[in-house]
Amino acid sequence: MLTDELKIEIYRMMYLAQTWEQRLLRLLDDGLVSGFYHAGRGHEALEVASMVALRDDDYLLYDHRGCAHMLAKRMSMVSLFGDFLGNDKGSTKGLGAGIVHIADPDHGVLGQSGTLGGGHVLAAGVGLSIKLRKTDQVVVNFFGDGAANRGTFHEGANVAGAWKLPVIYIVQNNGWAISTPQSQVTAIESFAERAAGYGMAGVSIDGMDPFLVYETMAEAVERARGGGGPTLLEGRVVRFRGHYEGDPGTYRSKEELAAGKDLDPVVRTRLRLLEDGLRTEEELDRLQHDVDAEIEAALEEALTGTVPGRERLSEGLYV
């Protein structure tokens, strides 16, 4: 159930994800991290609220769109910064992570397939593992409308449906596969329509509304834990920035982008909390101030890390 406390927590984490990313982009401007970053601004509601509906021992295969899902899955901010900085504070101990390949097994963060859509089949395997081990965990696999078209989706979704695996496929549909609009490469309007073909539940929602995301996700999680099988959850979202930092964005009209930005989930959720009287301006300001301080402290610690030498290359390939 979506309690008032959960609403506050969702807002806090969305604000954290947004602010964390702003801080990362400043590091990028300073030349401290690479431009292979795919900003998640605009996607916070879908990534955060869905993760808040999970337990610590549930699994996440994230996608490259920002880091809100990882942060909401309690991935350490020091590790995240360290991975971007390519130093030994990172989860990969300096392998350098751009945005892919950050992991945290203790919080179920299993990593990411660098080839888009590679996670579709891994997720089905994780679902099978959960079923064979007879736990009530679930696994969530994030991907965009672009990666929704990989053949791996067919193979993963087919077994997930056939064997009623506890997999939740979340497609972050922002309508653009880099520069290619969805309408140009798919005949359908909603990817949720595809779910029926795999015998799984399919639902398409406004992914800019975090409370709706939470409620929808909670249903999918309950279904998965109870043996009811997988869900394909489409969240319709807006990508506020380019596909990557430096993307000229010439393919999208200014009007479309401006209209999308009016739906800012972080701004609108703050207003909702105020309107509903859940918190006062002062309380939310204090919450944000605390988050800002938390981020700065994490960054400060991450910056003390050391970039490893050549010997790091050969570590961890084999057991």
């Binding site: 089949v121 891994l122 089905a124 395997g125 099978l128 593992s129 993963g156």
Partner: peptide, 13 residues
């Protein structure tokens, strides 16, 4: 793709 990728998913869990 599922056989191998799914195997990886099971192996890491």
């Amino acid at each position: 793709m599922f056989l191998v990728g799914g195997g990886v998913g099971a192996a890491i869990t």
